[in-house]
């Protein structure tokens, strides 16, 4: 449907891009096919300035307080958090697995890095996701071009810095094409230390 254009308010600090928050939650009874994924994902708001971001974000449940199988996504406005989206179809994502209890802090830090344009990879960043699961939580950052190694390495190195990850943290990269093939977001990844 049509949504009104979101712009920075008077005196607010504009962001380089507008970003849209999405929320999804899997109903355990339903298969995780593309159609049910699209039906389960809901757009919850778009922000255009630093101030609008904080207003929106401070009303959201912290991801660490979510239960069950759910995800928050923050993507550039106009990019759906789906593998098939035009901006994502040649892309992939870095995956960081977090033990329980860390998701809220890491989610905030990765968002601030993205909103503040800390990655320095041109137009490559599409968005970030925090995935709440039963045993662990998972942080992902999606970029447009999976086979651009200069970009993916720079994203990885920036993540280590902005999240202050210990040097032995395992980071995994998975192309969306591979996710489509095995119908899984987090299995069969390429490990990078």
């Amino acid at each position: 449907g049509k949504r009104k254009t979101v712009t920075p308010g008077v005196g607010e600090h504009p962001l380089q891009y507008n970003y849209t928050f999405w929320y999804s939650r899997r109903t355990p009874s339903r298969p995780a096919n593309t159609q049910s994924y699209e039906q389960n994902i809901k757009q919850i708001g778009t922000v255009a300035s630093v101030e609008q971001f904080w207003k929106f974000y401070s009303h959201l449940v912290r991801p660490g307080d979510l239960t069950g199988h759910s995800d928050f996504h923050l993507f550039k406005e106009g990019i759906k958090p789906m593998w098939e989206d035009e901006a994502n179809k040649n892309g992939g994502k870095w995956i960081i697995r977090l033990r329980k209890g860390l998701a809220s802090r890491f989610w905030e830090n990765i968002i601030l890095a993205m909103l503040g344009e800390q990655f320095m990879v041109g137009e490559e960043i599409c968005g970030v996701v925090v995935s709440i699961r039963f045993q662990e939580d998972i942080l992902s950052i999606w970029n447009k071009t999976a086979n651009d190694q200069v970009t993916t390495s720079r994203i990885r190195d920036t993540l280590r810095r902005v999240l202050n990850l210990p040097p032995n943290t395992i980071m995994e990269y998975k192309t969306h094409n591979d996710s489509l093939k095995d119908n899984s977001s987090f299995r069969n990844t390429k490990i990078s230390l």
């Binding site: 600090h13 401070s58 503040g116 902005v162």
Partner: peptide
């Protein structure tokens, strides 16, 4: 064009600015 870059501290400082109250 120029890119709008904000560091973490700048963003955190805006969290409690009068505009977000």
């Amino acid at each position: 064009g120029t890119r709008i870059i904000y560091d973490r501290k700048f963003l955190l400082d805006r969290r409690n600015s009068p505009l977000t109250q």
